[in-house]
């Protein structure tokens, strides 16, 4: 079993233009920085990106947007990005906005092998337009489909050579769900360790879901909204 690759370029070598990608992260927290940089370098375009957010102008998915590599974003919240706004208003970029819990649960459904889930979020709103509604116990629910994603790209805190992953803090967010949902899943990790070093009780994503893993480098881990309190 050889899952370990040398770096981001090798991990993403076969991602073609037009691919559908899931990218883990919430805001700039827990984003796969190395793979995003490699995708920018590779120059693939017409990508459909499933990600909670779209980064900022000069970081995260914003780097792909700036190079016009993204055809469509599927997200729950896409503020804080001027280039995104420009492309959206000019019609260059397609955007599908979906509720955050629906996004997470559709990722989960994919990884659990379920074709669809029934969710309350969006009932009675424009999100419900065109969707099948089913009534259970007197309440209406929207049928929301699992995703079909060619690749999932996540960043974990620790991973072993078998692909087992552990995330840190709120950098976990969508990443385990997306890792489980990719036809090919790529994990970049801050600490790549030999098998046997991670406590089996503490694994967030078992390696069966992970196809390629590598030791990431030069993490910037930018903070979007640094908020501190003074020491009195």
């Amino acid at each position: 079993m050889k899952k370990v690759v040398a770096g981001a370029d090798e991990a993403i070598y076969d991602i073609p233009s037009g691919a559908t990608l899931m990218l883990g992260g919430f805001g700039l927290c827990g984003i796969p920085e190395n793979c995003i940089a490699a995708l920018v370098k590779k120059g693939v375009n017409n990508l459909t990106c499933i990600s909670n957010n779209a980064g900022v102008d000069d970081f995260g998915i914003g780097l792909l947007l700036r190079k016009r590599q993204v055809k469509k974003m599927i997200s729950s919240y896409v503020g804080e990005n001027a280039e995104f706004e420009r492309q959206l208003l000019s019609g260059e970029l397609e955007v599908e906005l979906i509720p955050q819990g629906t996004l997470a649960t559709r990722c989960m459904a994919t990884g659990y092998g379920m074709p669809a889930v029934f969710l309350l979020a969006g009932i009675g709103t424009e999100v419900a337009e065109g969707k099948e509604i089913r009534n259970f116990n007197g309440k209406d629910y929207l049928m929301e489909m699992a995703f079909d994603s060619d690749f999932a790209i996540v960043k974990a805190w620790k991973g072993d050579t078998q692909g087992n992953l552990i995330f840190k803090g709120t950098a976990r967010n969508f990443s385990p769900l997306m890792a489980m949902a990719g036809k090919i899943t790529i994990a970049e990790v801050e600490h790549l360790v030999p098998i046997g070093e991670l406590d089996p009780n503490c694994i967030h994503v078992p390696g069966i879901y992970v196809h390629r893993i590598f030791q990431g480098k030069d993490y910037e881990k930018r903070i979007e909204n640094r908020t501190v309190r003074p020491r009195s």
């Binding site: 729950s76 919240y77 503020g79 906005l97 509720p99 819990g101 629906t102 979020a121 999100v127």
Partner: peptide, 8 residues
């Protein structure tokens, strides 16, 4: 900008 988690 999107609904984030508000609808859920």
């Amino acid at each position: 900008k999107g609904m984030g988690g508000a609808m859920d």
